Amino acid sequence: MSPYTQPLSVPRPRGLRTLATGLSLVASLTACSIASPVSPDVTPVAQTTTTETTSDDNTLIGTYQEGYDLGYEHGSTTGARAGAGFLSERTEEYREGYDAGYTTGKDEAEAATKNPVTSFGTPMEWEDGLTLTVTNDGYFTPSEWAAVGDFPTYLSFTFTVTNGTSTTWTSSGYTQVTSAGSAGDEVYDSDQGYGGAPTAPVLPGQSITWKQGFGVADPADLTMNVSLDWDHVDVVYTTLEDAWTF
């Protein structure tokens, strides 16, 4: 038989064998990496702990009420408003409170230095508890020996002071009357008990009452200024309703 009639035996290429071996190795490595993943090489970062420090100056941030209280104190006590730099360090709410408190305190402080004007018979009470009431009791006729000027009308007034303070009170003031553009004149009439304001001390919780008479030009146009002492603002009583402040 001719050797050319035998089937050919072709050897497997060496390149394919190498490729198959490589693919097998890659598959093996992949399987291993899935089963046991390798942790990444990460360098840990040092952690730092921050602690908030609280400022000792708690007024840098305040509430509306705190601002109101401080503003009121400035308005009523010093009468001097804090500068813009002072307020800019506060919160908006604090500043609003400060402004409101300042306005209220300032208004009350200014009102306290003005003479309150009221009607006869209306009690006037000061912050320390002292109370004054003056009533217009109407006409009277001075006695023959009374010390008084020549007026068409004489009016009698009753004064009552109640000492609601914690100290003894003594009158040291004066009373002035104007009527229809002219000054009135006080009546001194011992026979009827008109002798000016008493100077006797009044203990806390006690009251004192006295009467004074004045000659006036027109009882319908009457204004009386009462000064009890140097420690309390004067009170103005008047028949002119438009002038009343309380």
Results as ranks from 00 to 15, higher is better:
60 L>A: 14
130 L>V: 05
94 Y>V: 07
98 Y>E: 06
71 G>Y: 02
127 E>D: 05
109 A>Y: 11
112 A>E: 13
103 T>I: 07
98 Y>Q: 03
115 N>K: 13
99 D>E: 13
78 T>C: 00
119 S>I: 02
58 N>M: 14
89 E>T: 15
105 G>C: 00
121 G>P: 00
124 M>R: 11
59 T>K: 15
63 T>G: 05
79 G>N: 00
113 T>K: 14
96 E>I: 04
111 A>R: 11
108 E>R: 13
84 A>P: 14
127 E>L: 09
61 I>W: 15
121 G>R: 02
102 Y>M: 03
113 T>V: 10
105 G>L: 01
91 T>L: 07
116 P>F: 05
131 T>E: 10
126 W>A: 07
128 D>Y: 01
55 S>K: 04
73 E>Q: 14
69 D>Q: 06
67 G>Q: 06
58 N>Y: 15
52 E>P: 14
102 Y>E: 02
130 L>A: 02
76 S>Q: 05
125 E>Y: 02
100 A>T: 03
79 G>Y: 04
111 A>S: 07
58 N>T: 12
96 E>D: 12
81 R>K: 12
73 E>S: 14
58 N>V: 13
134 V>W: 11
99 D>T: 07
116 P>T: 00
52 E>D: 14
111 A>D: 05
122 T>H: 09
73 E>W: 13
128 D>L: 01
62 G>T: 05
78 T>Y: 05
135 T>C: 05
78 T>M: 01
75 G>Q: 12
115 N>D: 11
115 N>C: 10
120 F>L: 03
100 A>Q: 05
100 A>D: 08
112 A>T: 03
135 T>D: 13
73 E>Y: 13
69 D>S: 07
128 D>H: 02
132 L>V: 04
112 A>I: 00
130 L>Y: 00
75 G>Y: 11
73 E>N: 12
55 S>C: 05
62 G>R: 11
62 G>L: 07
117 V>C: 01
96 E>Q: 14
96 E>H: 02
104 T>V: 15
90 R>T: 05
57 D>E: 15
90 R>H: 12
102 Y>L: 07
135 T>W: 03
79 G>L: 03
54 T>Y: 13
96 E>L: 06
100 A>Y: 00
58 N>S: 15
57 D>Y: 10
54 T>M: 12
126 W>I: 06
113 T>E: 12
56 D>K: 07
80 A>P: 00
87 L>S: 11
63 T>F: 02
93 E>G: 01
100 A>G: 00
125 E>S: 14
85 G>H: 01
112 A>N: 09
78 T>A: 03
125 E>H: 09
57 D>C: 09
74 H>N: 08
91 T>M: 00
107 D>R: 15
97 G>Y: 06
129 G>K: 02
127 E>N: 04
70 L>I: 06
82 A>E: 15
114 K>N: 10
101 G>H: 08
58 N>C: 13
59 T>S: 15
76 S>T: 06
75 G>T: 10
109 A>E: 00
